[in-house]
Design a binder for these strands. Structure first.
Length: 506
RNA sequence: GUCCCCAUCGUCUAGCCCGGCCUAGGACACAGGCCUUUCACGCCUGCGACAGGGGUUCGAAUCCCCUUGGGGACGCCA
């Protein structure tokens, strides 16, 4: 009794069901990932269901590698789906059945016009710079002729019969763009079934969304102009259309739509993973490309973003993803870097740990003891060096000297800090001797050694401080010297100071 | 060519729906300063926009129209 009451109540509220429906014809790129993110956010916000549907009905271009890349990308971003992946190709039969239904109810008709013929017409129209629209001549075919041609095995496509009453208008309310109206007269009788009997996207997509009971279609604004056609299909099928929410497009700095084909790997999710991005930093950044919170907050935890996110606050204007391929500094949008570096240096060390580990493992700098005996040291080291890092890659490049003796010396640093004064050739070994004697090896003891050494030799402390920095880390920049020396450790510091002699004279 | 959408600092944007609180706010980037053994971080300051033109109104970034600019869609692609 109680049970059925609960059921009744829950059936009153329509469950939020959204989907991300990429076609597996290439990489998962920023635009797609952002669409996935917005859908995911909306599902989570409404305790709804996030569905992954692979629209693989373009057999020519779909690949299994691409499917894998999409799965990997979403997984890495942390955008977990609740149902799927479904494959659109598995539903092909349902789609053509829907077309048959539309044929039976008089909402569609067979068109025997040849592809070549129509293409020629289209080309002509283009040459004359006039709009081409199929004239619907096959609408008028009488039953006898149709049967004749069918007996004859003439090939045909199925076209949707767009209402032709003079003032017929298709209306829908977009959650982002508001009320959209389009005159039916501006829509041609579009093809829904190919001559080989296979369905087209415009049909398959609407049928699948119906079958999956999708409540909200959140997709790129490039779908906006197609929506009236789909609304027509829903209506002809006798189904209430989902709520549409079109999101503005992301453009490149030349204002061209971001696409895998022209932008290649530099806009792919895999690339950001390889270049040392934290997945959530990327999500947080992407969320702000076309959406903003009510109070100006920019950094959001997952829960915060889910709570703050709302379709009504999605912007209508396209945004530019401001990156310059090939530019080492602006290889991606500077604001994306800002999000990554801020997360990198403020997130709890324990959360950062696995990412740094992965990076060091990949670059063969990982030592199992970082997770066991030297764990404390390792965490302290990460914490010390991360404040000037931008991506995870920095831990293995700029941070190399902390994890390996096999690191490079920056030429400019050597010139500036070691070759600047010949006396360093014996100052540094002397310092090494003094440091070796230290019983309590820590940053304040080290500072004491350096300060008194400078007094003794009547030199500026900066001379040996900067020299030691370069001798020990290979660089002219980095953390405060005494913390640096403390972290690198007595043995390595002494060795590096002694061998730096060679760099001074050379 | 036709249809549709959009328009605030270099970029992401707040404000627009419900005109006055906007000498237009924030963030990134950039420039300068402070801090400092270096470089970052941090803090402070600066630079910097309502596309243009008409209306409506006492008053317009906000409402209306036009122009311009940008984008998207027009396929037997998805």
């Amino acid at each position: 009794m109680k049970f059925s009451l609960m059921n009744d109540q829950s059936s009153n509220a329509v469950q939020t069901r959204v989907r991300f429906a990429p076609s597996p014809t290439g990489y998962l790129h920023l635009g797609g990932a952002r669409t996935a993110l917005y859908n995911w956010l909306w599902a989570r916000k409404n305790d709804g269901v996030f569905i992954l549907r692979i629209e693989d009905t373009d057999a020519e271009r779909s690949t299994t590698e691409s499917v894998q890349e999409i799965l990997d990308g979403l997984h890495w971003l942390g955008l977990n789906w609740d149902e799927g992946p479904y494959f659109q190709s598995h539903n092909l039969k349902k789609h053509s059945e829907a077309a048959s239904g539309l044929l039976a109810t008089g909402n569609a008709y067979r068109c025997f016009c040849s592809k070549e013929d129509l293409e020629a017409q289209r080309n002509d129209a283009e040459k004359q710079k006039v709009a081409f629209m199929y004239d619907g001549r096959c609408r008028k075919l009488d039953q006898d002729e149709i049967e004749n041609r069918l007996r004859n095995n003439d090939s045909f496509v199925v076209r949707f019969k767009v209402p032709r009453d003079s003032d017929s208008t298709i209306v829908f309310d977009d959650a982002v763009y508001g009320r959209m109206e389009k005159r039916a007269a501006d829509i041609e009788d579009f093809v829904i079934l190919r001559s080989d009997g296979s369905p087209l996207y415009i049909l398959s997509n609407a049928v699948d969304d119906t079958l999956d009971r999708i409540s909200h279609v959140i997709r790129g604004a490039d779908g906006l102009a197609n929506t009236p056609k789909q609304v027509l299909i829903y209506e002809a099928l006798g189904v209430v259309p989902p709520i549409f929410a079109h999101m503005p497009l992301t453009l490149d700095n030349k204002k061209a739509k971001l696409s895998k084909r022209v932008h290649g790997e530099s806009v792919t999710i895999a690339y950001y993973k390889n270049r040392g991005f934290l997945p959530w930093a990327l999500c947080n950044f992407m969320a702000l490309l076309g959406w903003s919170g009510p109070d100006g907050q920019e950094f959001f935890s997952r829960d915060e973003l889910i709570k703050a996110f709302d379709l009504s606050r999605i912007n209508r204007a396209n945004s530019i993803f401001n990156y310059t391929p090939g530019d080492s500094k602006n290889w991606t949008d500077p604001k994306a870097i800002h999000f990554n570096s801020t997360y990198l240096r403020t997130m709890p060390i324990e959360e950062l740990f696995p990412y740094v580990k992965e990076e060091l493992v990949a670059k063969e700098l990982w030592n199992e003891s970082y997770e066991t005996g030297q764990k404390q040291w390792f965490q302290k080291t990460i914490d010390l060096i991360r404040s000037r890092f931008l991506t995870l890659e920095d831990f293995s490049s700029r941070g190399r000297a902390y994890f390996s003796d096999d690191f490079e010396f920056d030429e400019k640093a050597v010139k500036k800090n070691l070759k600047c004064d010949d006396r360093l050739a014996f100052f540094l070994p002397e310092l090494a001797d003094e440091i070796e004697q230290l019983e309590d090896y820590n940053s304040s003891a080290l500072e004491e050694v350096f300060r008194s050494f400078a007094d003794k030799k009547e030199i500026k402390a900066g001379l040996i401080i900067n020299a030691a920095r370069t001798a020990v880390s290979g660089s002219s920049v980095g953390p405060g010297l005494f913390e640096l020396l403390d972290i690198v450790g007595k043995t390595r510091v002494v060795n590096r100071l002694r061998s730096a002699k060679g760099l001074v004279n050379k």
